[in-house]
C-alpha cells in the first residue's frame, strides 16, 4: 500500500518538476551562502602553519654571530644541488661561511638542509612571496638569508592584508591567528 502511495507521489512529483525545483532551491540557497574566495592580493592573506616550508633563513646565536659552521652538509644533501657554501676562518679560529648562496629557482623546498644541519643554522621559514621576473634575482646570498623572516610562531588562518608592489605585503591584523578559512566551506 505504502509502496503504491510512494509511486503515486513520485509521479505527482515528476509531473510538477519536483526534481527541478529541488535543484533550483539548492542553487538559491548557495547564492546566499558565504563565498569561500580568499581575496589574496587585494584584501586578505593566508598565514602559513608553523610547519610550512617557505623561504630559507640563516640563524644567529646569542652573540649575534652566524650559527652556520660551513660544514657543507646541506650542500651535500641537497637533492637539486642548489646550495653553494665557501668557508673561511675568523680571528677566533671559528669556521663560518664566506659565501652561502641558495638558488631558490632550483630549490624544491624539501627541507633536507634543515634536517641535515648539525648547528641548527638553516631552516625553512614562513615567507612565500618571492617571485621574480629574473631567475638571477632568485639566487639568495648569505646576508639576505640572515635577514629573512623566521618560522611562524602561530599560523593557519587568513588575515587582512594588502599586496603593494612597492612596499611589499602590509599585514594589518590584531588577531595573530587569523580567521579559519575552512569554516566557510559549506558541506551538505
Amino acid at each position: 500500500m505504502s509502496r503504491a502511495q510512494d509511486k503515486v507521489g513520485t509521479w505527482i512529483g515528476w509531473a510538477f518538476f519536483a526534481d527541478l525545483a529541488n535543484g533550483l532551491a539548492l542553487t538559491f540557497g548557495y547564492m546566499f551562502s558565504k563565498p569561500v574566495t580568499m581575496q589574496y592580493p587585494d584584501k586578505e592573506k593566508w598565514l602559513p602553519y608553523s610547519r610550512y616550508r617557505g623561504h630559507h633563513f640563516l640563524k644567529r646565536d646569542e652573540e649575534g654571530e652566524i650559527k652556520c659552521v660551513a660544514c657543507e652538509l646541506c650542500a651535500r644533501i641537497c637533492p637539486c644541488d642548489c646550495i653553494e657554501v665557501v668557508p673561511y676562518e675568523d680571528e677566533k679560529g671559528n669556521r663560518h661561511p664566506a659565501k652561502f648562496e641558495i638558488d631558490t629557482a632550483r630549490c624544491l623546498f624539501c627541507g633536507l638542509c634543515e634536517d641535515a644541519c648539525p648547528a641548527d643554522a638553516i631552516a625553512l621559514g614562513q615567507q612565500y612571496e618571492f617571485s621574480s621576473f629574473s631567475s638571477a634575482d632568485l639566487v639568495i646570498g648569505r646576508d639576505d638569508l640572515l635577514a629573512k623572516p623566521g618560522k611562524a610562531a602561530t599560523g593557519g588562518g587568513v588575515v587582512a592584508a594588502r599586496l603593494n608592489t612597492e612596499q611589499g605585503v602590509l599585514v594589518k591584523s590584531s588577531e595573530q591567528q587569523g580567521y579559519n578559512w575552512w569554516r566557510n566551506i559549506r558541506r551538505t
Binding site: 548557495y30 547564492m31 546566499f32 551562502s33 563565498p35 574566495t37 581575496q39 587585494d42 566551506i185 559549506r186
Partner: peptide, 13 residues
C-alpha cells in the same frame, strides 16, 4: 549571480 551560486565572488577588482 554565477559566482555566488558557485560560492565565488564574481568580478571584484
Amino acid at each position: 549571480i554565477a559566482g555566488h551560486i558557485q560560492q565565488r565572488m564574481g568580478p571584484m577588482r
